[in-house]
Design a protein around this nucleic acid. Sequence first.
DNA 1: ACTACGTCCTGCTTGC
DNA 2: TGCAAGCAGGACGTAG
Length: 283
Amino acid sequence: MPELPEVEIVRRGLDQFVVGRRIHTVEVFHPRAIRRHVGGQADFIARLTGQTVDAARRRGKYLWLPVGEDALLAHLGMSGQLLVGPADAPLSPHVRVRFTFDDGGADLRFTDQRTFGHLLVSPDGAQLPAEIAHIAPDPLEDVFDLAWLTARLRTRRTGIKRALLDQSLVSGVGNIYADESLWRVKLHYARGADRLRPGQVAGLMGAVVEVFTEALKDGGTSFDSLYVNVNGESGYFDRSLNVYGRAGEPCPRCGTLIRRDPFMNRSSYYCPFCQRRPRNGRW
DNA sequence: ACTACGTCCTGCTTGC
DNA sequence: TGCAAGCAGGACGTAG
């Protein structure tokens, strides 16, 4: 569920409450949380203990905290949270990794019910971790290149939503914001990515930026307690969703009932009137 | 090389 | 009522 806006909210919280502080202790409670750290648990702990957090950066749904030349890289997965709170508070059941700081203030807890998220230390990863070299820039970055994306989409023999969810083409978009963006520009999720005119790609990415910006203003989308900011507070953009999770409800634009289709082992929500299905799967 | 699908994981919801 | 199946889904490995 955390997509770009939710991860950005977390990044801002880390920027405010963690940057500039020196890590005192690192405790790993669940090995799966650092499964992608190549050096193992002892190495993970050793590389972070005593280091000062220099910044909080983000690309798409990944965020990283530069510590000297290295970086602590984080992906929240489905249910990951980075929580800043009283160091003496009892550990909740799903705390996977805990960081304390030299100043004795609030600690940082990586909490993750479904354990799809992970942390790792990226050597020399302060600028851009090598582990995410394949992740394309997100549409809120200065280096985002619309012309490059347009060219890549032209050779893609797949539906536009699959392409939108492919983080090597454009990052930060997940199932919720993909459906919301496609609804805004009246595109069906199965429209051939290679059949879109450049103007349509530009319009779609404009809608993505629009939805991201509005969601950021609302503090992100929270359906339940699984997404919260670093202080444990929920966002309320779910109230502004037009189609996602609204099967059977009227389309806010035309009144036709929203539909839900099975899609990639998940769901696609769309208005069957505003977003016409391609006749032969490619249109 | 490119695309599609299964897998990981837990807890809440739905249905028989 | 109770249990089982369904559902949520990001990213990666593998199959085709």
